[in-house]
Amino acid sequence: MAHRIFTLWAGLVVAAAFHCSAFAGPVEDGLEAAKRSDYATALKLWTPAAEQGDATAQSYLGLLYLRGWGVRQDNAEAARWYRKAADQGNTAAQNNLATLYGNGTGVPQDYGQAFVLLRKAADAGAMEAYVNLARAYEAGHGVAKDCGAALVWYRKAVSGGYPGAREALADSACRS
């Protein structure tokens, strides 16, 4: 059930993590390299930026380690980079780290911590967190079970046009 609650949708996570910016630089150049599946170059460009505190680069590194793209796959290292970015308010990292906590991937399973992160991301308008937050409310993971709140978040995701949101709502045991 935990995997249904905190689903890591590869395409959605990639879309959420790889957003575009108007200014060229190492982070953006790394993004272009990653889009070409040149993860070694992306890693080379993102690592110094991440080490200097760039939250976007930290989130991107989390994804590389999570997927094993250009590096040895390492869930704990993914969680470490996501935590650094999440602590700076990076909503993609908050959502992705919440998924790791929800599944106990690279970190101890902790629904409470997952919920806190999802709520921060969703409250900041991160569409990628809406469905996961709805599922947490639906299952009572990290929060009291609340179908009304679950439906609110599912519907916000649907209204925002988030991919897969309609299906998630249709599959919900909370739908009325």
Rank of each mutant, 00 (worst) to 15 (best):
T47N: 06
H141L: 15
L61F: 00
K84P: 11
A42Y: 05
A93S: 00
G140W: 00
G53M: 12
E128H: 12
D110Q: 10
L43D: 02
A50H: 04
A49D: 14
R83E: 09
Q94F: 02
Q109C: 08
A98N: 00
K120M: 04
Q88S: 07
R72Q: 15
A40K: 15
L66H: 14
A86N: 08
Q109P: 04
Y60L: 12
N96E: 01
T47R: 12
G62V: 04
A49M: 15
G142Y: 07
D54P: 10
A40L: 12
L133V: 02
A79G: 08
H141G: 13
G70Y: 05
N75W: 14
L45K: 13
A92H: 01
A98C: 04
D123T: 03
G112V: 09
Q94T: 01
G89L: 08
Q109F: 08
N95E: 03
E51K: 14
A144V: 05
A139Y: 11
P108H: 15
Q52F: 14
Q94D: 02
N90V: 13
V116A: 13
G140A: 03
E77W: 04
V131I: 13
A122W: 03
D110G: 09
S59Y: 07
R80W: 14
L118Q: 08
V107Y: 10
A93M: 00
W69L: 11
A129F: 03
K44C: 11
A121D: 02
A50M: 07
T99D: 13
G68N: 06
V71C: 08
D87F: 10
L133G: 03
D123W: 06
Y137W: 02
L66V: 06
G62S: 00
V116C: 11
L100C: 06
N75P: 15
G70P: 05
T91N: 04
M127F: 01
A126F: 01
G102Q: 10
N75M: 15
K145A: 07
A139L: 08
V107M: 12
L97A: 01
V107T: 09
Q52V: 14
T99R: 14
V143A: 07
Q94E: 06
R135P: 04
Y60D: 08
L45I: 13
Y65S: 02
W46L: 07
Q113A: 14
G112Q: 13
V116Q: 14
A134N: 06
A92G: 00
K44W: 14
G140S: 01
Q52D: 15
Q113F: 13
N103K: 12
A92K: 00
Q113D: 11
E77K: 07
N90R: 07
A121F: 00
D54N: 14
A134C: 05
Q109S: 08
Y65Q: 05
G142Q: 06
G68D: 07
A98M: 04
N96Q: 09
A93G: 03
W69D: 15
Y82C: 03
W81R: 03
L64Y: 03
G68H: 09
G68V: 10
T99V: 13
L63I: 08
R80Q: 15
H141M: 11
A121K: 01
Y130P: 04
G142I: 04
D123G: 07
L100D: 01
G104P: 08
V71T: 10
G70W: 05
